[in-house]
Computed example of a mutant assay.
Amino acid sequence: MHPTTSLTQRTTALLVGALLVLLAGCGSGGEQNEARGTEQAAPPVKPRKATAAPAGLPGMPPVQDPQDIYAADRPGMLSPVVKNFPSRVYVPNTNSNTVSVIDPATYKVIDTIPVGVQPQHVVPSWDLKTLWVNNNRGHTLTPIDPATGKAGEPVDVHDPYNLYFTPNGKYAVVMASLDRELVFRDPHTMETRHTEPVSCYGVNHADFSADGRYFIVSCEFSAELLKVDTEKMKVVGRQRLPFEGAMPQDVKLSPDGKTFYIADMIAHGVWVLDGEKFTEPALIPTGKGAHGLYISRDSKEMYIPNRGEGSISVFDFARNKLTKKWWLPDGGSPDMGGVSADGKVLWLSGRYDAEVYAVDTKTGKQLARIPVGSGPHGLAVYPQPGRYSLGHTGVFR
């Protein structure tokens, strides 16, 4: 959410005939770090009748494994485009108007890049060649070359709170939060191709269906969700969350492509949504200030940082329940981030503490706590495995 906005303001083609089948894999083990309130079962998701899947979004790379949309995200599966990029963690400091660059091998800040006003997220481009810094109140995008770590000339884009890319790479989609718009742009020049006004407040985060034909958007200021037709670039569904004052944040699709999860920092949990039916979702309580959603490299678990209490909940897809809860030893405000290329480290910004956390994904142990600028937000771990990027801090498929 915007650090300067009060809470009151912030109320490929798919294989034709393929079937979406059972959840991939089994729950992995791993020690619990002061587990509190774990084993929280998710509401059961009623299976839909097996029917032939519709053709995917035209131009989208074919899904490698219909059972696991993240099959291209395994350790070591770096695209030829990124395999020679140095491994770095790029941290946008919203209040400092800078990006801190961390060497993950040493846990040290090795560079500080001046950018525009109020950088919110660092977003990998669809073709993996560029990192875009979203300077929300500066109304610009700053490109960073991940091969050199150097920033280029800013591009004028109004109200770029967050940035996504359609699965076929045809459009960049700017989440213009305060403008109340979804702006479809050329993914390279960022010239506007279509503007879709929305009636909700605070369009924020999103994720795409397995076939790429629609995406689910969270509206944090008005407690709403949108369903958007990707090809038509039109809102086709809208609903209000059944929780007073809800503030939905990150959105993530399950590995089997059947379920959307939406973190909610006021409902203190994760909503479970059938995206196809777009019926009322159910809530899994996780912890105070649930904010981000990150999939493990084996697609078995999802990490959920609870910003308001300094913890990370772990959801097991096969068991359909929360199984672990890790607590940062000295507290903190774990927010947005990503998983290292080898899957061993979860990197999260400390939104209110001017720091970044590195957490062992097997044990939940804090590996490092790194001072950065003020208001660190949507950091990007780069490079990561995957064939293309859907945006945000790195959603790869």
Rank of each mutant, 00 (worst) to 15 (best):
residue 353 D to L: 00
residue 102 I to D: 05
residue 262 I to E: 00
residue 114 P to Y: 03
residue 367 L to V: 10
residue 163 L to C: 05
residue 163 L to E: 01
residue 61 P to C: 04
residue 23 L to Y: 04
residue 395 V to H: 03
residue 8 T to G: 11
residue 223 A to S: 15
residue 109 V to K: 07
residue 282 A to R: 15
residue 44 P to I: 00
residue 117 V to W: 06
residue 109 V to M: 08
residue 5 T to M: 14
residue 14 L to E: 02
residue 187 P to G: 09
residue 146 P to N: 10
residue 125 S to D: 03
residue 307 R to D: 05
residue 271 W to I: 01
residue 15 L to V: 11
residue 145 D to R: 12
residue 199 S to T: 15
residue 107 Y to C: 09
residue 16 V to I: 10
residue 15 L to N: 14
residue 73 D to F: 08
residue 128 L to H: 05
residue 215 F to W: 14
residue 387 R to M: 00
residue 292 G to M: 04
residue 10 R to L: 13
residue 104 P to L: 08
residue 225 L to F: 11
residue 143 P to C: 13
residue 238 R to I: 00
residue 328 L to M: 14
residue 392 H to N: 13
residue 197 P to N: 09
residue 300 K to T: 13
residue 51 T to D: 09
residue 80 P to R: 05
residue 306 N to M: 04
residue 37 G to I: 08
residue 378 G to A: 09
residue 56 G to M: 02
residue 281 P to T: 08
residue 242 P to F: 11
residue 59 G to Q: 06
residue 380 A to N: 07
residue 324 K to A: 06
residue 22 L to C: 10
residue 278 F to W: 11
residue 17 G to L: 07
residue 246 A to T: 03
residue 6 S to G: 14
residue 7 L to D: 14
residue 128 L to E: 04
residue 156 D to C: 00
residue 95 N to Q: 13
residue 62 P to E: 14
residue 13 A to E: 15
residue 350 G to R: 05
residue 358 A to L: 10
residue 251 V to T: 11
residue 55 A to P: 06
residue 190 M to W: 14
residue 238 R to E: 11
residue 151 A to C: 05
residue 214 Y to H: 12
residue 339 V to E: 07
residue 136 N to Y: 10
residue 231 E to H: 09
residue 79 S to I: 02
residue 249 Q to R: 12
residue 155 V to W: 01
residue 1 M to V: 11
residue 113 I to V: 15
residue 58 P to W: 05
residue 296 S to K: 02
residue 110 I to G: 05
residue 168 N to K: 07
residue 235 V to H: 06
residue 384 Q to M: 14
residue 105 A to L: 13
residue 379 L to K: 09
residue 274 D to I: 11
residue 366 Q to R: 11
residue 394 G to R: 02
residue 350 G to T: 04
residue 365 K to R: 15
residue 388 Y to K: 01
